[in-house]
């Protein structure tokens, strides 16, 4: 279902829990699907003993993919024109992430309607792990 400009307001939000208790297995699953096999994400021995981190951690792109689901569930599949993010903190196995999309602007360009959104993904401690913006095509 696409969003409608007639019913949408600046400040409207859509929130979803995008992962509950992130497993190492899901991180491995993402490595396999994306092709990014960096041991920092999949190899506890390397990551703790050689790279010096306390544990493996999720690919930034896994967090972006999880968060993308909140956008497409809100604006409709195939409706995004733009999606950009900054990764601000690492995501660890066991983390639970909630993502919020907020309508920042509704505008018309060349006779087409768009919603500009801000996106924020936070962990169970309320710490932001990713922030960004997106633009979606919306209906009248």
């Amino acid at each position: 279902m696409a969003l409608k400009a007639s019913t949408l307001k600046v400040g409207d939000t859509h929130v979803e829990r995008v992962v509950d208790n992130l497993s190492r297995t899901q991180i491995v699953q993402y490595a396999g699907a994306s092709g990014d096999y960096n041991p920092l994400h999949t190899d506890e021995v390397y990551t703790t003993q050689v790279a010096g981190y306390r544990s493996v951690f999720a690919h930034g792109m896994l967090t972006m993919g999880l968060t993308g689901k909140v956008l497409t569930n809100y604006v409709g599949a195939g409706r995004l024109n733009r999606f950009g993010v900054r990764f601000t903190n690492q995501v660890w196995p066991g983390d639970t992430l909630d993502a919020t999309a907020t309508v920042a602007a509704i505008r018309e360009e060349d006779g087409k309607l768009f919603a500009d959104l801000t996106v924020s993904t936070v962990n169970q401690d309320g710490k932001e792990v990713m922030s960004g913006t997106a633009t979606a095509r919306i209906d009248p």
Binding site: H59, G60, M61, M64, L80, N81, R82, F83, G84, V85, R86, F87
Partner: peptide
Amino acid sequence: LHAEQHFEY
């Protein structure tokens, strides 16, 4: 590490 990612569709 990945710091930023931006897509235009």
